[in-house]
Design a binder for these strands. Structure first.
Length: 254
DNA sequence: ATGGCAATAGAGTATTGA
């Protein structure tokens, strides 16, 4: 069983990339963020045609999340019931006995900005909700764009980024509070290459210079962490023409 | 210190992302 997450930065623009990637990487489940599509525009037929059932929660212009699955999808939930949010950032579903949560954590823009305050409130409510989900679903996987680099080794230049949004102590503490629930970063369950990132700035040849951040994560409950045999970041799609600024992260479960 | 690139909405340029 392979599960993946990818911030596609507009599914309308990136659908060809997604289809090409799935053709070579036929994962069982993939969580998408920043679809930027209203639900009436979601490419259901195109994805059904390549064997995926789809569920989605979108809005105009911004945000939007989706789960694609080769297995039947049940008990779909949109948004965090503990946090009234007009922005479409969370989608959960039960697939193959697992509870899959697809999350697009707010960016935060700048430390202490209104958007940062919203990010921190969002994360606190997310933690509270995941605590209840863990009780209900011991087999829980939380995949998405967290917009937080957990440690300095997840940042290309920690000095340049120090104290900034995505790496600030409060954001890292919020991410650590998810770990405290028992959710484990699948990527760090294994030996990994140094300077592994999942996002690179479009500007200044960020990808070629590997000026990136590791901000897309797959968090696994203890039961799933025990069943995880690999977790990798696939840089290939970032090399394609007109890429998303994020690349897919994939976990393999027995 | 700023903008650099990309996508969207919508028709020049503002907003957001990270």
């Amino acid at each position: 069983m392979k599960i993946a997450t990818w911030n596609v930065n507009s599914l309308k623009v990136r659908l060809p990339h997604l289809l090409a990637w799935l053709a070579n990487n036929p994962v069982d489940v993939i969580c998408l963020q920043e679809t930027k599509l209203t639900d009436d525009k979601f490419p259901v037929a195109e994805l059904n045609a390549v064997g995926y059932e789809v569920v989605f929660s979108g809005q105009k212009t911004y945000n939007g999340v989706a789960i694609l699955s080769k297995l039947p999808v049940t008990d779909v939930q949109k948004n965090n019931p503990l946090f009234d949010d007009p922005q479409q950032r969370i989608l959960a579903a039960t697939i193959g006995g697992m509870r899959i949560v697809c999350a697009y954590v707010p960016n935060g823009q700048a430390v202490d900005s209104d958007k940062y305050i919203y990010k921190m409130a969002w994360l606190a409510a997310f933690r509270d909700w995941l605590a209840t989900e863990l009780v209900l679903h011991p087999q829980l996987a939380v995949l998405g764009d967290y917009n937080i680099a957990p440690e300095d080794r997840d940042v290309h230049d920690p000095v340049e980024w120090e104290g900034g949004v995505h790496v600030s102590p409060a954001e890292r503490a919020a991410l650590a509070s998810l770990s405290a629930l028992g959710l484990q970063d699948a990527f760090r369950l294994f030996e990994q290459p140094e300077k592994s990132y999942s996002w690179w700035d479009y500007r200044m040849m960020g990808f070629r210079r590997n000026r990136g951040l590791r901000i897309d994560h797959i968090l696994l409950s203890p039961a799933l962490a025990a069943a995880c045999t690999a977790c990798t970041i696939d840089r290939e799609p970032r090399k394609w023409e007109q890429p998303s600024d994020h690349t897919p992260v994939v976990a393999t479960l027995t």
